[in-house]
Computed example of a mutant assay.
Amino acid sequence: MRYLVLADIHGNWPALEAVLQAAPPFDRVLFLGDAVGYYPDGDRVLDFLLEVGAEGVLGNHDAWLLALEQLPVEGPVLEILAWQRKRLSRRHLDYLASWPWQKEVEGALLVHGSPCDPFTYLDDLAPAREAFACTEKELVLHGHTHLAGAFLALEGPRLWVRHQAFPQGGELLLSPKVRALVNPGSVGQPRDGVPGAAFLLWEGRKLEFFRVDYPLNRVEARLLEEGFPLWLLERLKVGQ
């Protein structure tokens, strides 16, 4: 089975569309959270995930949108989520609410942040070590940091952990004794200094990272059309 693995789309439909046009053939879609937030087209993103029957887990922006009635709507992040929620159907909301915090697929664990806590960022060796201690799974697929790469662990007298970044794409073959925390990078808002939409193809112990360009003027047009702040576009230009 070959999986298209997506994370952190954040309502950026032009980015997702570019991924779908560039992706090699795949069998199923796995989604690692944060369909909504930041960019205007959360509804279109959810339509796609529903259409293909994607198996997803809840991200922090997804959870915040669902819990807006219990949150003070202050600051641009929650204001955007409140704007998006008004445009989502009951079908969209029920679909979001059906996502678990964690899910197992073919022996791999899907989670937005860390196996210890879905809101924890796996952005350094210390939280990565803690994450490996929180699960016995050989492969964890996660998002949240918007950084394409993998933490690799090898058991010995002590746990040996290193990080390998894939901002420009590349291939990772996992040996039988290695455990991995793998992040495909963000479709909608990369933060590793490389513009473009990131995604991953996973098949067995082979993981292929991709980064694809797309016309940012389409994002700009949507931001202007809906009155969204243009700093969102500036982030995309520099991959931050």
Rank of each mutant, 00 (worst) to 15 (best):
H163Y: 15
G113Q: 09
R90T: 15
H10I: 01
H144I: 05
A153T: 04
A133R: 11
G42E: 12
G143K: 04
Q189C: 02
V105H: 02
A150G: 03
S186E: 08
Q189G: 01
L78M: 11
F26I: 04
A67P: 03
H61G: 08
L139Y: 08
L96P: 08
G33Y: 01
V73I: 14
Q70W: 00
E225Y: 09
P215E: 04
Q164I: 13
E171L: 14
A133T: 08
V5A: 03
C134M: 06
A148S: 11
K177E: 14
R44A: 07
E130Q: 11
P115C: 05
L110A: 10
V194T: 15
G75H: 13
V105W: 00
E220N: 01
V238Q: 05
L58K: 13
A23P: 04
P184V: 05
H146M: 07
P40H: 04
G239Q: 09
P127D: 05
E208R: 15
R85V: 09
V19Y: 12
L49W: 13
E17K: 10
L223M: 04
V5S: 02
R90K: 15
L232S: 04
N183S: 07
H10V: 00
E136N: 12
G185F: 15
Q164Y: 12
P72Q: 13
L173T: 08
V73N: 06
F199N: 06
L152A: 09
P157L: 13
A35C: 09
H142T: 08
K137W: 01
R90H: 15
E130Y: 03
G188Q: 03
S89R: 14
D43S: 15
L152K: 00
P100E: 03
F48K: 07
N12T: 11
L216N: 02
N217E: 13
G107N: 10
V219W: 07
A18G: 06
R205Q: 09
F209D: 13
P229T: 02
Q164H: 14
W202M: 03
K86I: 01
S175R: 13
L110E: 04
A18E: 07
F151K: 00
L49K: 11
P76S: 13
F151P: 00
R191M: 06
A131L: 08
F209G: 07
R235G: 00
A108C: 15
L154C: 00
G59K: 00
W202E: 01
L32V: 13
P195M: 03
L50E: 15
Q168G: 11
F210N: 06
E234Q: 13
R87Y: 15
E106L: 06
L32P: 09
G53L: 06
W99D: 12
D8R: 01
G11H: 03
L233I: 08
E79Y: 12
G239K: 04
A108T: 14
E208K: 07
L174C: 05
A15M: 09
